[in-house]
């Protein structure tokens, strides 16, 4: 299939996926039990799908954050070294040094809960209770001035909270940006100007932070 035909086929499939229950089954494997699925099904979506019941406060989150998170992310989410910065950066996305933090860039608070649940603390993933995860989510939002000092968060309030950059994303993909053309073969430029030169051959002496 040509790639154009494939792209068209994908679009069609997206629009008209039909159940394949009629296809012949091979009978390999088994149906997992509800308990097996529940043990691994940890994802949470911005529309509330998968968010477990629970709650936590900014105050509870502060204690957890200071003992589990601050060593990498800094006391105020400002980051230590090259670890991710969690707070600040509002208004920086159109500037020369955009800072993509939870407050300035992340479109959904539920994504934060989902990510904390599956991946944090770094090196001790899936170790926190549900209420602790809501508390940490609440505290991280507090660091971004998105919850007050006495704020709390639960499975319902988390997706009522509109993040500052919630409308900052566009899809579908607008590419290709450059239409097909016959490439130039001769006398394509008049002057060859070197705009920049590499400064480092490996990471050891690199200047970029």
């Amino acid at each position: 299939m040509s790639s154009l035909a494939r792209a068209a086929a994908i679009v069609v499939a997206l629009a008209t996926v039909t159940p394949s229950a009629s296809a012949e089954r091979l009978g390999i494997g088994r149906v997992p039990s509800p308990a097996e699925i529940a043990g691994w099904d940890i994802d949470a979506r911005p529309d509330g799908h998968g968010l477990p019941r629970g709650q936590g406060t900014v105050a509870q989150g502060l204690k957890l954050y200071d003992s589990l998170c601050a060593s990498c992310h800094g006391d105020f989410g400002e980051a230590v070294g090259r670890n991710p910065e969690l707070a600040g950066g509002i208004g920086s996305l159109t500037g020369p040094d955009p800072r993509r933090t939870i407050g300035s860039y992340w479109p959904y608070a539920a994504t934060l809960f989902d990510y904390l649940r599956r991946a944090m603390p770094f090196g001790d993933a899936q170790s926190l209770e549900i209420d602790e995860l809501y508390a940490l989510t609440a505290y991280t939002l507090f660091l971004n001035d998105l919850l007050p000092t006495d704020g709390r968060l639960d499975q319902d309030s988390i997706h009522r909270l509109k993040m500052p950059n919630a409308d900052g994303f566009v899809s579908p993909d607008p590419r290709p940006e450059f239409p097909p053309k016959a490439p130039c073969m001769t006398n394509c430029t008049s002057e060859i100007r070197i705009h920049s030169r590499a400064r480092t051959s490996d990471g050891a002496g690199g200047q970029a932070r």
């Binding site: 994802d43 979506r45 911005p46 996305l93 159109t94 955009p98 993509r100 939870i102 860039y105 992340w106 479109p107 959904y108 539920a110 994504t111 934060l112 989902d114 990510y115 991946a119 900052g168 994303f169 566009v170």
Partner: peptide
């Protein structure tokens, strides 16, 4: 809208939209 498809692997354009 997982972390890797919102805060990462999104392409920030000059107008601030990604």
């Amino acid at each position: 809208h997982s972390r890797e498809e919102t805060s990462k692997y999104t392409d920030l354009m000059p107008d601030g939209k990604a």
